[in-house]
Write a protein that binds this DNA or RNA. Structure first.
Lengths: 155, 155
DNA sequence: TTCCTTGCAAACACTTTGCAAGGCC
DNA sequence: GGCCTTGCAAAGTGTTTGCAAGGAA
């Protein structure tokens, strides 16, 4: 729903990005596609198709999984969403404009999101040294969160 | 979890690690398991099951995919290998003692390994700020490699 | 001899695709 | 009306599992 980087009137809403992407290649706007888009944004990311579909069906029970897969592919290709693969064999999607990295507690599963400009700058630097042009990245730090370390200490 | 160069007599070879892991739980050493292990190490990592199986079958054509899956699970559980999921829907394995980060060309699939101490230091720093103690991490940079950028330019 | 391991094929989970009906422009 | 999109079911992937035969200890 709401977003962080609002530039007054020049705001590029996901709806607008998608609309342009579709009209550029003769694709059509449909009730299902709008529903997938709004559900995805309302949920805020990290959902897999199954979870997304469940929420979508609260509104329209007849939407099929195939449509969700097809629409998420569209969102991915148009740059609105990013597909991520964690270890669980499913694809999860995140809002492209809200990319961040993750701290994951291997003990309780807590996921903390973060962003670090210095690290990102160094990533570009490393890539450049290898002749790469980076378009995306993924960084996950695994370990123990403060609460779990605390629990382990008193146990 | 850094540094694993060979220290003469105290060397913990993968064979030894695996042997201990298996004997601790009554598992047996077999021709197939040894073959999977040696092939995996000889290849140096980043192989998926299909590729691994192809190399294994050059030696013993009768080894089944199931055995490779089962053995790689064993190697993963014993801490000898790490399972990694890149964007292609398959599981790739790497040698646990040779952890590094990856640059992945989204055009040709090339994987380049790298390590950057400055980035790793900053990762620990970020984690500390969030109260986390990091034990492992994963970082992948996606983009276009030099060769593919070249090709795109001349096309 | 005991019980683990193997190869095979079937089962699985997730995702993609062919097709006829339906819907947007 | 033309052509894209949908839902369904079938087909594809990559991976796991049940089972009977084979093999290590």
């Amino acid at each position: 729903m709401r977003d962080q980087t609002n530039h007054s009137e020049s705001a590029e809403t996901p709806e607008r990005v998608l609309a342009r992407y579709m009209s550029e290649r003769g694709l059509k706007s449909t009730r299902q596609r709008s529903l997938v888009l709004s559900t995805f944004f309302h949920a805020g990311g990290h959902l897999n198709v199954e979870e997304l579909l469940a929420r979508i069906r609260e509104v329209d029970p007849k939407v099929s999984a195939a449509t969700v897969y097809r629409t998420m592919k569209l969102l991915t290709e148009s740059g609105i969403a990013h597909a991520r693969h964690f270890g669980d064999g499913q694809t999860r999607f995140e809002i492209a404009s809200e990319h961040h990295d993750h701290l994951i507690c291997t003990s309780c599963g807590t996921i903390v999101e973060f962003e670090d400009d210095k690290i990102e700058a160094l990533q570009l630097e490393v890539a450049r040294r290898h002749g790469f042009t980076v378009t995306d990245h993924k960084m996950e730090l695994y370990g123990r969160c403060g609460a779990c370390a605390e629990k382990a200490r008193s146990a």
